[in-house]
Every structure is written in structure tokens, then in C-alpha cells.
């Protein structure tokens, strides 16, 4: 009997170890879709930031923390991912406050358009990178589409098992370690694909121009969370405005009204491209949907000034250790930019 128990225990352990290995093998490595790695990179740099950006692609493609540091001495991090939903931003922010106390939180408002979870693949890109905490569970619960279940997040093997027949070299190369893809949350895009005739296109007709209730509720929760943690919430709309991700005047009016009611700053940069200096023939890598690194640098410089002048970040002090870390980050940034 004793022998049988020992064999059972050993076999169970072996099965668990094999499954753990297989899990590492089959979970996505995001070698092509680098966006999937953004959220997980935060923890290596967590703490001591003056500004935290939260939102979708419009934050991680429009602001460069290295430039913000270099030009203004502002320490920042971008907690953004592909089509990051408002509640995901909320829970990421909630988690961030466990690690640090930024004085300004910048939220890009485009994601307010989504009142429901969109696609499982996007959820995965945002949620899988989060460390386990009550915030992660909250984010999963709020984000799951009908086909998903919490168990699949706890044991990603159950979700990605079918990849066992689709493995690539990357799955073995990044079995235990993922490559670093961002510069403090900024995902560098150096390509240039100028905006063409499509620039004149406007967003398609919608059924209803009211921003979804759920998004507005989470925006309000985000405001309360910031207030609770002594951070100022600043709302922005990135300057890009392609017809697919069109920012409707009706939406803008609702955000303006909300910001006024709550006493928040709201900057819509769509109409300020000239002041910012953005040239859509050179500053976008995908025909104006997102900014490339050259556009993002201009946007960062412009916004840094606003942070300095209007949000009390003119004379922030940092320790020598922090400054040294940032010097390294800035060097790394330029190394890649000028490569």
C-alpha cells in the first residue's frame, strides 16, 4: 500500500512538472505581435514614476518616457496594450498604485468607445502579462468574453494546448525568457508610411453616439482611485484620428462635459497637430493610424511642456540611483532608435 502511495505521489509530481513545462512551451511568445509583451515588462521598472500613462495603442505609440526624462526630467511609464479596455486600464492602475505613487495619471480616452469585451486575443495580450493579484482577477472577470473562463487564465495551458501542433522556433527560444520589447512601455516603430488620400475619410455612421455606460463608470472609478491615491487624472486624446478609430465630436463633447464636471484636465490633440509639429508624411508608420517614433518624440515634447507648466511637474527631484537608471534607459532608447 505504502509503495502504491509513493508511486502515485511521484507520478502526480511528474505529471505536474511535465504539464508546467508544456505550458511554458505553448503559451504565446508574441514574437510577431510584440504588443502582447508590454504589460508584463512593467514589473522590472515598477516604482518611482512621476507619471503613469494608461490606455490603448494611442499611449504606447504616442509617448516616449525616455524623451520625457531627457527633456523634462520627468520619470514615467506607459501601462498600455493593444485595444486595452477602460476596465483593464482601471485594474492596471489599481495594481500600479500597489507599487508606486505617481503624481499624474494620463488616460487616453479612445477606449471609452468600447462598452463590452471585444476579443479574447486582445484580453490575453493585456491580462496574461499581469502578475497574480486581486486586480488581475478583477480585470479578468470584467474582461472575459462569453467563450472564456477564469480557469483558462489560471492555467493558460488549458487555453493554449492546441498550439502544441503549431510550435515555432520562437517557442523554444523564449521558453523561459521573453525578449524585452519596450522602452518603459513605449513600443518603438521606426517605419514611415505616409498618410494618403484616406486622410480625408471620416468615421463611419454609428447607431448610437452615446459613450457606453460601463466605460463611463470605469472612468469614474479611475478618477476616484486616483483621488484616493493622491494622483491627478489627466485625460487626453492622442492626435491620430484615422477613419477606423475615429473620434466623433459627440464623444468628445461627452468627455469635455465629464471633465468639466469633475474638474479634470482634458486635452484633445487631434486639432493641435500643427502646434505639435506632426507631419503625417513622415511621422506615422501606418498611414496615420499611429505615430512612429519621430511623431511620438514630437508629441512627447509637446506634452512634457504641458505637464511641466500645468501639472506641477516642473521641478521633480529624483535620487541619483534613479537618474542613473534613466540614463541607461535613454541610452538604450537612442541605441535602438539610431540603429
Amino acid at each position: 500500500m505504502k509503495k502504491r502511495v509513493i508511486i502515485t505521489v511521484c507520478a502526480s509530481l511528474a505529471v505536474v512538472l511535465i504539464l508546467a513545462f508544456l505550458q511554458s512551451l505553448v503559451v504565446p511568445k508574441y514574437a510577431d505581435n510584440r504588443e502582447g509583451l508590454l504589460v508584463g515588462e512593467y514589473y522590472a521598472e515598477a516604482g518611482g514614476h512621476d507619471v503613469i500613462f494608461v490606455g490603448d495603442c494611442e499611449v504606447y505609440e504616442s509617448f516616449v518616457p525616455a524623451v520625457l526624462w531627457e527633456k523634462y526630467g520627468i520619470s514615467s511609464y506607459i501601462r498600455g496594450s493593444s485595444q486595452q479596455l477602460v476596465w483593464q486600464s482601471y485594474y492596471l492602475l489599481e495594481e500600479t498604485f500597489e507599487y508606486e505613487s505617481p503624481s499624474v495619471v494620463v488616460f487616453n480616452v479612445l477606449a471609452l468607445k468600447y462598452g463590452e469585451p471585444q476579443r479574447e486575443a486582445y484580453n490575453r495580450m493585456t491580462l496574461d502579462g499581469m502578475r497574480w493579484s486581486s486586480s488581475k482577477i478583477g480585470a479578468i472577470r470584467a474582461s472575459m468574453t462569453e467563450e472564456e473562463s477564469l480557469v483558462d487564465y489560471v492555467f493558460p495551458l488549458l487555453r493554449f494546448h492546441s498550439r502544441i501542433t503549431e510550435l515555432s522556433v520562437d517557442d523554444f527560444a523564449y521558453l523561459f525568457d521573453r525578449p524585452k520589447v519596450s522602452h518603459s512601455g513605449y513600443l518603438m516603430q521606426k517605419g514611415i508610411d505616409p498618410m494618403d488620400g484616406d486622410a480625408t475619410e471620416e468615421g463611419r455612421e454609428l447607431l448610437d453616439y452615446t459613450l457606453p455606460e460601463t466605460s463611463m463608470e470605469y472612468l469614474e472609478k479611475m478618477r476616484a482611485l486616483c483621488a484616493e491615491n493622491g494622483a491627478e487624472l489627466v485625460l487626453i486624446k492622442a492626435p491620430t484620428n484615422s477613419w477606423r478609430y475615429w473620434w466623433y465630436d459627440e464623444w468628445d463633447a461627452q468627455v469635455v462635459k465629464y471633465a468639466e464636471e469633475k474638474g479634470l484636465a482634458y486635452y484633445n490633440f487631434i486639432d493641435e497637430t500643427e502646434e505639435i509639429g506632426i507631419d503625417y508624411t513622415t511621422d506615422t508608420y501606418d498611414k496615420g493610424v499611429h505615430l512612429n517614433v519621430y511623431g511620438a518624440e514630437k508629441m512627447t515634447e509637446y506634452f512634457g511642456r504641458i505637464l511641466e507648466e500645468k501639472h506641477g511637474l516642473a521641478d521633480v527631484s529624483h535620487t541619483e540611483a534613479q537618474a542613473a537608471e534613466w540614463r541607461t534607459r535613454v541610452d538604450e532608447y537612442y541605441k535602438e532608435r539610431n540603429r
Binding site: K3, R4, I7, T8, C10, A11, S12, A14, V15, I18, L19, L22, E120, E147, E148, D152, L157, L158, R159, H161, S162, I164
Partner: peptide, 23 residues
């Protein structure tokens, strides 16, 4: 028992890895 543990362990892994379930 050793053979049994190996076979059923393998069966469990096979179900998890090659089962057509989930998203």
C-alpha cells in the same frame, strides 16, 4: 502500479494537450 501510473499519467497529459476543447 508503475506501469499503471505511467499510462494514466500519459493519458491525462494526452487529454489536456490533444483534447479539442476550449476557446
Amino acid at each position: 502500479p508503475v506501469l499503471s501510473a505511467c499510462l494514466f499519467g500519459a493519458l491525462l497529459i494526452a487529454v489536456i494537450m490533444f483534447g479539442a476543447y476550449g476557446v
